[in-house]
Nucleic acid binder design. Sequence first.
DNA 1: TTGTAGGCGTTATCAC
DNA 2: GTGATAACGCCTACAA
Lengths: 341, 341
Amino acid sequence: MGLKRTTINDLAAKLKISKSTISKALKGYPDVSDKTRKKVLRLAKKLNYKPNSIASSLRTRQTKTIGVIVPSVVHDFFSKVIDGIIQEAENKNYLVILLQSGEHADLEEKQLNLLKNKQVDGILLSVSNETGIKERLNKILEKGIPVVLFDKIIKSFECSKVIIDDKLAAYNAVSYLINKGYKRIAHFGGVLTAQNSIDRFLGYKQALIDNNLTFNPDLVYINPNNDDINDGYSNAEKMLKEHTDIDAVFAITDLIALGVYKYFNEINIRIPKDIAVFGFSDWLISSVITPNLSTVKQPSFEMGRKAVEILIDEIKNINNNTDFSFQNIVLPTSLIIRKST
Amino acid sequence: MGLKRTTINDLAAKLKISKSTISKALKGYPDVSDKTRKKVLRLAKKLNYKPNSIASSLRTRQTKTIGVIVPSVVHDFFSKVIDGIIQEAENKNYLVILLQSGEHADLEEKQLNLLKNKQVDGILLSVSNETGIKERLNKILEKGIPVVLFDKIIKSFECSKVIIDDKLAAYNAVSYLINKGYKRIAHFGGVLTAQNSIDRFLGYKQALIDNNLTFNPDLVYINPNNDDINDGYSNAEKMLKEHTDIDAVFAITDLIALGVYKYFNEINIRIPKDIAVFGFSDWLISSVITPNLSTVKQPSFEMGRKAVEILIDEIKNINNNTDFSFQNIVLPTSLIIRKST
DNA sequence: TTGTAGGCGTTATCAC
DNA sequence: GTGATAACGCCTACAA
């Protein structure tokens, strides 16, 4: 059976060279003669030697692996972020362990511990909507392992972050609506435990105020799940029961906007003629539906890529005992204006 | 500095108990007295002891980690499969390392080797469209590590597989079109190096033949990238230049169908009145576009879940030296009939 | 330039 | 019920 993989010891035995020399030859250390290096390399190839990275990890305390936790993978935005993460990690010779919190703080905590036990070199996290994460994070992450938060962050947690300016993006979107002449603008927001929900709400509110429109809390509808079309659907129904003069909806995500579309379609409300709709995130779907949806474009792939870049820099700095300070990267967004507004 | 994590040795030193006993106590072995077990557990908790799974892996030759390679993560279908994979793996206390081949056989091969070096306990793979994979797979995977292929498989490679019956699903879809009265049905297929492209094409062809319609190779349009709307778009344009009598299109994926939608919209061809369109995969988008798209529903989450289940069974069997035979699981699909046909 | 020796943290075997 | 010892495969001072 060829079941046993060849190890450094096997090479050493066959070649009658000490295993330290083998190791050095394999890793291209300068203090090995060309002759022996070649001998080693040749046999290594012949016996199909592959380093056992577990053994190496135990010894060097580096796994060349990062852990990633997102609320969900089945998600246009997060899947693109993950794409960026995996690709950049691979460029830098890191592997990615992926976990989904499902927006549950308990699971998130458990997963964080799993990753630590697995000795990942660093963690990328987009936090769940549940509250009280900060204290847990503090406790779990106090010891040495670098963490970079992206997209869904906790402001007060001290670490590097890669985000967009949710407040500004929302502000711009709503300002655009106002400039277009819409005056009774409802907001279909998220639960206000999540920082990005808060910021998008704040941007909405500020845009109204700065444009001398009154902010009316009654026009704010909370969607328990940002990514559930049904939430948008039922809030649209609710809104139209309570108000007859709405002329635009600013939704926290494209999926909520889609729920609005669905209900409006059913009762023959025309978009944007009767009521305009603005989304957030630019899901694939948004450019294809009729009328296609105006939305906020987020740099998803780049967010993942950048988060990895920062994380790996921090890992290196820690290994070299180099001082470094946390970064707070704010990636630019843009409005995509289409037919729904 | 609390930088150093507490180890079994620390516990042993503090408690003046040998580390072997500590280890046993920690893992709930029966041959440890209640008294010492409690002592150990208490101190472990107090010092926040967490096992180092790397050390354990080196010793036990089990990493409790599986590797997964898919063509792409930004993909409605694969993201759902991955969801199923991660969740089932987590249920069984396995972690998932995720990699994307981008349909490149070279990268795929490199990644397979990476995963092996990382000592993953098993691999889940959905192969790329490029050819010649089988020989490479044989070479890479000859030694002991179990592999389960899913969705995009290589028929002749000997291992367990989790798939759908692509040919039957396509056959059913096209038969449905024929029964509805459509007679000049074009196929927008994929490159014929991929088994599922081949099978969907074969299903299309067989349905025509069984219903006494002539199969015309000119009505088959190949899309280099199954998931590129633009391919569907340009083939739609090409098709209408070459044929004026087409009354239905059976597309290999919903995204190709969307490309068809896009072109038809631009030149005011009405779906399904002028030409019907049938998709494959039931992307989220398909239920929302106008007219919403008839398509084939695949059990994506379940496919991932089942693949993990089989893989972990095989891992266990190998560890126990139990014989087992490869499974070939064919998951059921169904037609979702909507407004586009 | 090469080799020796020890250890990373855990687990398994065997003796006490 | 407990402990001594070795081993998993690799890396790295340090010595020769």
